[in-house]
Design a protein around this nucleic acid. Structure first.
Length: 847
DNA sequence: GTCGACCGGAAG
DNA sequence: CATCGCTTCCGGTCGAC
């Protein structure tokens, strides 16, 4: 079993680690052995044990209920590791405590500190439940409010500080308050439910290609809910029909999530800022702002969907969002309009009654697009049926119908498309006008592109395009999830790479352990998008903690094997971040996307499911006789280091091949680590300043049109030569770049990266290439650009770390490791004095 | 012609 | 004090092969 090997690891660590720590190491081993014994005893008397907590290391701080001993038993018997002493930083994955004094709060700031209930619930549910819910660092303990009814969350004394993206709970806390996040989550979960419950149901057929469509949604749902469940002590006389009301967080540049019709009367719109909205109101009329009430929104939505799903005339109920659905009925439902309208009004009544006052409107027609337009006409609080085919609908009615819509009322026409149409047809104001102006598809297609042009054209005739209609004929596929991502473009303010790395760890943790786990998927492709403050944008944008105007930077990466290992993913993200030229302080937004999802159950080899396990197998195969077929994901001595390890060498260091070599290497690398850490710690501020300064200049240079044209030309030129010839040729890329500016450095970086990655798999770099590379690095040093060497070093190190899983025992891997340790790092050290002197920039301006 | 990276747009 | 600017998918462009 894995346990024997784990204890072996411990022994190794104890004997090779010198000095004052050995006592703790020995003690730790003893305890770990006892734990294993304990577990075995349990198993021999036939008690149940599990592997639930495998890979987790738990430390108990202070007095808890259940007590320390009980927790110990719970942890050990479920395959976890119980830490008796928090000897070294980062050795525990979870800390259990009931409360923490302020000092400990700071000390444990970057840990998952949870109350004991988490463990109890994990065991009860036999799964790792999200720890965030149990975090005790989140805020002060919420006092139970005397009045349980209201939606007001502001309990006295519950002061939350300013948003801080370094807080380990930032992400969860932010999402908890974000309406857009909620909308996305709700939508995803409704779709998921649909897929699960309709999986076996016959899809509607295309041949029977006409249905009656009901498009139903709540009128200003957020505002209604906020009003109905408001704190009535604060606004006792508020009148929903007369007083303008908006839902938002703040007072000035806060988004209005939803406003009632009394507010819309004055031109207020959802998405507007509160300050703007207030200016639109007459002086004597005040805007009442109410807080979000996500809880009641969810409750209302449940009622909404259960009422709709209970209506047997509906073939299916397609979720659009938390407050909006499309119901499909037989075509002949249109034939008896009175019955149809009765049905609509009945469901409206029921929903209003069961939600204690939330009103829905219904649009009915024979296509998706017309039902949606009809819904618009129906609002607020109404039903509208538009019969596109009946002769009873005379042409003036039809014209009136179309005349009542603005151009962007048409589904698929937003801000940008609206502008395009306006530019082409300046006189067109309504959809009726547009119907008149563009009879043929081609004219619209020339402005909007093929698909959108066709879509709009069809829509104007009341027909759905195929893409839109898929939701009816192929809902399972439409609702099937194809990607998973998160976006954080608010509250992002970082000081340095260390903080960003930590944030990327948090993101990986969330994406992997919440999202991938929830959908039981692995990912094989990652995209990272960064938002960088525009050069000329203010440091503090108008919106508090907002992103302001930004330039986007994107990069993506294909992982060799689909994975759900948060360590691998975090490492890859950190690496990707470094390939983008965004200085930490200028970062305003982060977005991470998992692109090619694979069903975890479909993974070929169940052991290969987690990328790391493969590697452990190969890593240990030659060292000890291991008979097990279930490799441990993490060793006891080195619990998984996601989030804690800042040393990129650590992971591959653990994967050395022979025990003899391992010991040697370990000694060496311990020194190296200490040495490097010191080196890095002393210098980063100056380096950062330098890099940042240079990037600012680069950006200014990039800002000019001429430069952009030049870059394009350059790119084309580069394209002609392929990578190999770069390296094998006398005109190695490293020669011409010796005095070039940093724009090119990014390309160099990526080429070097490719080069390293390719040659790791083989026999290492070609000797001549290596000479060029060394020469290049030397030149960088000589020309006061050690910071660039640092970046290259970091990149190589990350790449090694990343590839150790698969290629850790290849010749090329070892060679690159040597190059890094024996050449690059010493090189940086040789020139460390240059970091401490002011350095003039010698960038060429050759515009 | 096809593929993939990247980008913009729309939706709630 | 401020404030919680998400997430998914489609379609287009451009460059590589």
């Amino acid at each position: 079993m894995s346990s024997t090997k784990n204890s072996k690891d411990n022994t190794t660590a104890a004997t090779t680690t010198p000095g004052r720590y050995s006592y703790f190491y020995n003690k730790k081993i003893k305890q770990a052995e006892q734990d294993i014994q304990f577990r075995k005893q349990y198993e021999t008397i036939g008690k149940q044990t599990s592997q639930l907590l495998k890979g987790l290391t738990i430390y108990v701080n202070g007095h808890t209920i259940p007590g320390r001993l009980q927790i110990h038993d719970m942890v050990v018997l479920n395959g976890g590791r119980f830490l008796h002493h928090l000897s070294s930083k980062g050795s525990a994955t979870h800390i259990i405590a009931s409360s923490l004094p302020p000092k400990k709060r700071i000390e444990f700031k970057n840990y998952k500190v949870i109350n004991p209930q988490w463990l109890v619930d994990c065991i009860k549910q036999q799964k790792i439940v999200p720890w965030q819910e149990y975090s005790i660092l989140k805020s002060n303990i919420e006092q139970p409010s005397i009045l349980k009814t209201s939606s007001v969350v502001t309990t006295p004394g519950n002061k939350t500080g300013p948003p801080d993206c370094n807080d380990p709970n930032f992400l969860v806390d932010y999402f908890k308050h974000s309406r857009l996040h909620h909308l996305s989550e709700w939508k995803a979960s409704l779709r998921q439910k649909f897929v699960e419950s309709y999986r076996d149901i016959q899809p509607l057929t295309h041949s029977d290609s006409s249905y009656t469509i009901l498009h139903i949604d709540f009128d200003c749902f957020f505002a209604t809910v906020a009003y109905l469940f408001r704190d009535k002590r604060k606004t006792p006389t508020l009148d929903f029909d007369k007083d303008p009301i908006a839902v938002c967080h703040g007072v000035k540049n806060s988004d209005i999530a939803s406003c009632n019709y009394a507010a819309r009367k004055f031109g207020l719109k959802n998405g507007m800022w509160v300050g703007t909205a207030e200016k639109m109101l007459p002086n004597d009329i005040k805007l009442t702002t109410l807080p979000y009430d996500f809880e009641h929104i969810e409750k209302g939505s449940k009622v909404f969907y259960s009422v709709l799903q209970g209506i047997e005339q509906f073939y299916c109920v397609l979720p659009v969002s938390i407050d909006e659905a499309i119901c499909v009925m037989a075509k002949d439902a249109m034939e008896n309009k009175q019955t149809l309208l009765q049905l609509c009004n009945a469901l409206r009544q029921r929903i209003k009654h069961e939600t204690s006052g939330c009103v829905v409107s219904v649009g009915v027609s024979d296509s998706l697009v017309l039902a949606r337009l009809a819904l618009r006409t129906a609002k607020p609080n109404g039903v509208f049926l538009f019969d596109n085919n009946s002769e009873s609908q005379d042409s003036t009615d039809v014209n009136q119908f179309w005349s009542s819509f603005k151009l962007d009322d048409l589904p698929g026409v937003g801000r940008s498309t609206l502008k395009k149409i306006r530019d082409k047809y300046p006189k067109v104001k309504t959809l009726h006008d547009l119907r008149q102006s563009c009879q043929n598809v081609a004219s619209l297609q020339s402005v909007l592109g093929n698909k959108l042009g066709e879509k709009v054209c069809l829509a104007l005739r009341g027909k759905d395009d195929d893409e839109s209609a898929r939701i009816i004929y192929d809902p399972i596929n439409v609702f099937q999830r194809k990607s998973i991502s998160i976006d954080i473009n608010w509250g992002i303010r970082f000081k340095d790479m260390v903080e960003i790395d930590r944030f990327l760890d948090v993101c990986s943790d969330y994406l992997v352990n919440q999202k991938l786990a929830e959908y039981n998927k692995l990912t094989s492709s990652i995209t990272l998008k960064l938002m960088q403050r525009c050069v000329d944008a203010p440091i503090d944008p108008p919106k508090y903690m907002g992103m302001g105007r930004c330039d986007p930077f994107t990069t993506s990466s294909r992982l060799g094997v689909p994975t759900n290992d948060d360590g691998i993913i975090a490492t890859e993200l950190k690496h990707m971040f470094r390939t983008l030229p965004v200085p930490p302080v200028e970062l305003r937004g982060v977005s991470i996307q998992f692109n090619r999802l694979v069903d975890a159950n479909d993974a070929v080899d169940p052991n290969a499911k987690v990328g790391l396990s493969l590697l452990f197998q190969s890593g240990h195969a030659s060292s000890t006789a291991i008979t097990t077929t279930t490799p441990p994901t993490r060793s006891i001595e080195s619990p998984h280091d996601r989030g804690e390890s800042t040393d990129p060498h650590r992971r591959y260091k653990r994967l050395k091949r022979s025990p003899v070599k391992e010991r040697q290497d370990q000694l060496e690398s311990n020194q190296r680590q200490a040495y490097q850490q010191q080196f890095f710690q002393e210098l980063p501020t100056q380096i950062r300043k330098d890099v940042q300064h240079e990037l600012e200049i680069t950006r200014k240079v990039k800002g000019s049109k001429l430069q952009r044209m030049k870059e394009k030309l350059q790119k084309r030129e580069n394209a002609i030569q392929n990578m190999n010839s770069h390296f094998m040729n006398n005109d190695s890329i490293f020669v011409p770049i010796k005095f070039q500016k940093e724009t090119n450095f990014e390309k160099i970086c990526s080429m070097v990266n490719d080069w390293v990655r390719e040659t790791i798999k083989e026999k290492g770099p070609h000797e001549r290439d290596l000479q060029f590379f060394k020469k290049y690095l030397n030149k960088l040093c000589d020309s006061d650009r050690v910071h660039l060497v640092l970046r290259l070093a970091d990149m190589v190190s990350v790449t090694l770390n990343l590839m150790s899983h698969k290629y850790g025992d290849r010749e090329g891997f070892l060679e690159w490791e040597m190059i890094l340790l024996k050449f690059i790092v010493p090189l940086m050290n040789r020139n460390r004095h240059t970091f401490q002197t002011e350095r003039k920039l010698d960038i060429e301006y050759d515009i």
